[in-house]
Amino acid sequence: MNIEDFREYCLSFNGVTEGYPFDEDTLVFKVMDKMFAMVDVESFERINLKCDPVKAAMLRDLYQEVTPGYHMNKRHWNSINPKGDLDDVLIKEWIEDSYNLVVENLPRKKQKKLEKMEEKEED
Rank of each mutant, 00 (worst) to 15 (best):
L106F: 07
V103R: 01
E118K: 14
R108D: 02
Q111D: 04
D88S: 12
V102W: 02
H76F: 14
V103M: 02
L86Y: 09
Q111R: 11
K110A: 13
N78E: 08
D97N: 13
K113C: 00
L86N: 06
K92H: 06
M117V: 04
P107K: 04
E96L: 08
P107Q: 06
I91A: 01
N81D: 15
E115W: 05
G84L: 12
P107N: 12
H76N: 15
D88W: 12
L106V: 04
H76P: 11
V89K: 15
I91D: 05
R108C: 05
K109D: 09
N78V: 15
L114Y: 05
P107R: 01
D97V: 02
S98Q: 02
K113M: 14
S79W: 08
D88Y: 08
K110V: 01
S79I: 10
V89C: 07
E115D: 13
Y99N: 04
K112I: 15
I80L: 11
K116L: 15
K116N: 11
S98M: 06
P82D: 11
E118G: 02
H76D: 14
I80G: 05
W94S: 05
N105T: 01
V89F: 14
S79Q: 07
S79V: 07
S98R: 01
D85L: 10
S79A: 15
L86R: 06
E93L: 12
K112V: 15
L90V: 11
E93M: 06
E104G: 07
M117G: 01
L90P: 00
K116E: 14
N105L: 01
K116A: 14
L114Q: 04
I91F: 08
V89H: 12
I80P: 09
K112G: 03
L114P: 05
I91Q: 01
K110Q: 14
E96S: 11
M117L: 15
K109V: 12
Y99L: 03
L106S: 02
K83A: 09
E104S: 14
D88I: 14
V102G: 06
V102E: 01
W94H: 06
E115L: 13
N78W: 09
W77K: 03
K109R: 15
P107Y: 08
H76M: 14
I91M: 09
Y99P: 03
G84V: 07
I80R: 04
E93Q: 14
R108V: 13
K112A: 12
D87N: 13
D88Q: 12
D88R: 08
I80M: 10
N105P: 03
R108K: 15
R108W: 03
Y99C: 02
K83W: 09
K112W: 08
W77T: 02
N81G: 02
D88C: 11
K112Y: 13
Q111I: 12
S98Y: 02
D87C: 08
N78D: 12
